[in-house]
Structures are given as structure tokens and as C-alpha cells.
Amino acid sequence: MKKLKVILYFPPESTDKPFTYHLVKDFDIVFNILQAEVQPGKRGRLTMELQGSEKNIEEALEFAKSHGIGYRPFNKNIVRNQGECMDCGACTAVCPSGALYMDKKSWELIFDESKCLLCELCIKACPVKAIDVNMFV
């Protein structure tokens, strides 16, 4: 099993196709939509995490390409500056996935990157700007 976060780019003519249906039905992909901007007749963008066998993920992305849907693996992650962080917990108030949470013994902030949905709400919620987005190519 493999997990991959990707951004999919839909040309205007593709936004009315049931793409996610095919992901499940034809390629047995479990997906989680992180961010979606899809409107009929307009260019669309869908950020999602795909989970499935390596072969199925590859084939699903090939399928997307053959239908004019471009894709890019995720090129950023959330980073926490440990030295700046005060372990206050303000970021945990807005984290929708429980990726940021307080250790109930030490009351240190824990960041479980595997659960991060890259919503970026924590960046602004941090009172000392100790959380940032790291871009990579």
C-alpha cells in the first residue's frame, strides 16, 4: 500500500466527468480530498491523498493523463520550528485532522505529519509564527 498526495488540474471540459468514481471503481483507490476548486465549465483543481497499491496509483494517474487531467505530486509540507514554538497549543484548536496535538503527559506540541491535510490553518493560528510551509520541487 502506498500513500501519495497529488494536485490534479482539470481543463474546463473535464470538470463534468465523474473522475473520482473511476478512481474507486476501476483502480480501487481510497482517497481523501484535501482541497477542491471544481466548477462546471471552468478550470479546476483538486488536491487529494491517494491510497492504494503502487500499480493502481500509477494506472490511475495514467488514466487521468489520458483524459487531459494534469497532475503534480505534492510539493510542500508543514514544518514546525521547534526553537520558536512555545507549546501553547493554539494551533491544535484549528487542526482538522488531529495532526497537531498536545502530549497529555508532557504538554509538548506533537506534529504527526502523516495526518496533515495541508490546510495551512495552523500557520495563521500560531501566535509566534513557528509554523511554516516548506516548498520542495
Binding site: 501553547c88 498536545m102 509538548e108
Partner: peptide, 25 residues
């Protein structure tokens, strides 16, 4: 509040601190 969630109007709601207990300790 420190358990991480409380019941509010029949719904479980996540709780979050704003002051640092770690630094207070």
C-alpha cells in the same frame, strides 16, 4: 478541558489550550 474534547449540545467538540502548560511547569 484538558482531556482534548468535551460534550457541547450533544456533540463532542475538540478543546485546545492557549497558554503553555509545558512552559508554566
Amino acid at each position: 478541558l484538558r482531556s482534548g474534547s468535551i460534550e457541547l449540545n450533544g456533540k463532542t467538540v475538540q478543546t485546545a489550550p492557549l497558554s503553555s502548560l509545558n512552559r508554566a511547569r
